[in-house]
Design a protein around this nucleic acid. Sequence first.
RNA 1: GGACCUGUAGCUCAAUUGGAUAGAGCAUCUCACUACGGAUGAGAAGGUUAGGAGUUCGACUCUCUUCAGGUUCACCA
Length: 596
Amino acid sequence: MTINILLEKAICDTLKALFDFDLATSAVLLQPTRKEFDGSHTFVVFPYTKLSKVSPEETGKIIGEHLLQTVPQVASYNVVKGFLNFVIKDSFWINTLQDIVLDKTFGNHAANGQKVMVEYSSPNTNKPLHLGHLRNNFLGFSVANILQANGYEVIKANLVNDRGVHICKSMLAYQKFGNGETPESSGLKGDHLAGKYYVEFDKALKAQNATLETAGWSAEDIEKKNPMLLEAQDMLLKWEQGDKEVVDLWKKMNAWVYDGFNKTYKTMGVSFDKFYYESDTYLLGKEVVEEGLKSGVFFKKDNGSVWIDLTAEGLDEKLVLRGDGTSVYITQDMGTAELKYKEFGINKSVYVVGNEQDYHFVVLKHIMKKLGRPYADGIYHLSYGMVDLPSGKMKSREGTVVDADDLMQEMITTAGEHTAALGKIDDFTPEQAQQLYTTLGMGALKYFLLKVDPKKRMLFNPQESIEFQGHTGPFIQYTHARICAILRKAASMGHQDFTSLTFNINKLENCEKEVIIALSQFPDKIKEAGDEYAPSVIANYIFELAKDYNRFYNEVSVFNEPDQEVFMFRIAFSGAVASVIKKGMLLLGIDVPEKM
RNA sequence: GGACCUGUAGCUCAAUUGGAUAGAGCAUCUCACUACGGAUGAGAAGGUUAGGAGUUCGACUCUCUUCAGGUUCACCA
């Protein structure tokens, strides 16, 4: 039983004993004590002054005194205004650390028998990945890890957007201007090659529009009847009819793109268990529409189009099938949701998709609910804000993006320069050094993107935003490496295994107690991060832990400690911190080095 | 115009879900090591939480309103 549960229960018992008041343990408001006050747990007594009929201070004293008498772990209490602070005995915290050292899976929660699918990444195959995709991929991968640590069985899925008129645009431009260029002949990564022609298309289209304008075309005609645009649409039609030439080109270019994506994913450190391709799923969902028509969830308009009325939910009428019987975006998503459920029997389905689709997912969830789907309540849109640049919005059509490959390479290079200048890894082989630079550069980038609340849009300044000091990934990685240095030295002295060690000490330094308190919160933080789909909870927690440890590091010495028992305790203690830092960072998809 | 999201220190972000004097990092200024790793630690300074009203013991948090920025309201995906 954790100290929180123990205290909560004791408080309920106390309220019952003193005031004959019944309170559920879950309703007890227990919070961490602020650092400037003495104690570790705080109970807010304001709501109970009505029961005690005395001042908040008096109420706190009465409750505090009762707990002091009945709970052996409580060393003392103090009351400030209406805040009752408990000081827990050092012996309790020493035992807590002992438990943490022994628990190999500390932080993880037991399997809960639930299955969740996390769909993320979902790239278009007409252009390379950019900064926005990095946020998406890091979020998705991390949330999948966090849910797994919470006891879910997790399936990571990638729904590849490999068809549509935008894909045809790159294909068409390649056909017109490509001259048989290949990744090999151009030296370009496959996805970058496709992206090059997507930009080419846009340029050519704009040039043609200008010509048409001078030729006296109306704006509307230019918009809708531009020959190049019509050609692209015609190409899509041919693709749907299975035209061999078009399909072959599509296959060839997509293969290039996938080859490029795989390299990018590898550098990102993300992976998937299941790929869906829109070319396979874009016709799905029509049976669902049929079913909905029969059950009266949908209705048909005169021109044959099918709709759902969501005005009662405060939304609009929404089209689910065109008049000509073809699908729209939501039709497809309905079908895909159904497919995912049939294939995996998932209880929850998380969609990591940008916030410009907030409305779409609200509608999707409503529709599935109205259709009575058992998985409808489990649909969760993990919506995240755009990543802005100082120069404004990124536009992939115009090529004004921060390319994911370029950015990652730049981070790795910068990390390398930084590390080399410090000269601490002179004994590394070139391969080891390169590996380390990747760990550090990617650590900085991932941490920067994950420490922020997903739904907030964020500003990315390439020059200033990425730091290696302060509230950053490398700061945490550094703390870990520093502890590893201690552990190495201890190991060389013959101290390696602490699982059989009993801590024979009875007093803790304040800085030690703070670290143990922080450590003990790890399981709760994992739960909170899972409940809220928020890697930022873990990111900020690990930073606090690292900071607390660094204070300990500066205040007390490990190897100069004369008392052998205390010395051994501090090594085991440091090892536990390193272990939690490592686990926490891995939940974010960030590796931690032992030397840097 | 309707709906939704965001607004906190010069900058980038927190705030345990309604709790104590709103906290960190960067930048600025002061300090601390013959040490176990200075990619560190301690301190100073920096705030009318966009503005206003309300709810109550108590509001960055909830309600209303004004302002600013963004997203979305396609028989596009």
